[in-house]
């Protein structure tokens, strides 16, 4: 188990532990492991790194982390080739970094089918990065489907906002 998994595991355990205290008394606690010292999930090894890391510069092109898609499409548009290339270059130069690409959908309907559609978008971004030479071990494509919409309205703009894949660096 690396440090990242440990952080997540600890955060999850403390989350569940915190929740169990508010449950009705009849409820069986689902806690998988005993709570340990709470570690905020935002704690990151990057913060100890040099301030010159462009990953933390809000004016760096690396600050752009979202790829938007057309309706019913998982094709990466020309507009986002530059963004993906910038991240690919950074990842190739910083082999210790990993990213998760989180796919999202705007659609209604089956939660599982939407999860698969969001996965297809995330995989599309992942493949674009692999073509540019990023190592597979630095990339993970996952999906939130329609479960974590950024925009909760029902306008076209809201839907467009949710047709998205986000690039998330480890520990962020």
């Amino acid at each position: 188990m690396n440090w990242k998994q440990l952080l997540i595991g600890t955060a999850a355990a403390s989350l569940l532990a915190a929740c169990s205290s508010t449950k009705p008394p009849e409820t069986t606690a689902p806690v998988a492991s005993q709570p340990t010292t709470a570690v905020a999930p935002t704690t990151s090894s990057e913060q100890s790194q040099t301030a010159l890391d462009p990953l933390h510069d809000p004016n760096s092109p690396l600050a752009q982390r979202s790829v938007y898609f057309d309706f019913d499409s998982s094709v990466v548009k020309e507009d986002y080739k530059g963004l993906i290339g910038t991240h690919a270059d950074y990842l190739k130069a910083n082999g210790n970094h990993k990213i998760t690409i989180q796919g999202n959908t705007d659609a209604r309907g089956s939660r599982e089918y939407n999860l698969a559609l969001g996965q297809r978008r995330a995989e599309s971004v992942k493949k674009s990065m692999e073509v540019l030479g990023v190592a597979d071990k630095q990339l993970e494509a996952v999906s939130f489907g329609k479960e974590k919409p950024k925009a909760t309205g029902t306008s076209d703009a809201d839907y467009a906002e949710n047709r998205r894949a986000d690039i998330v660096y480890d520990g962020q």
Binding site: K23, E26, F144
Partner: peptide, 13 residues
């Protein structure tokens, strides 16, 4: 009704 799992993140299926 009994809550068997509570989470801040989505649960499905």
């Amino acid at each position: 009704a009994q809550t068997v799992l509570r989470s801040k993140e989505p649960i499905m299926s």
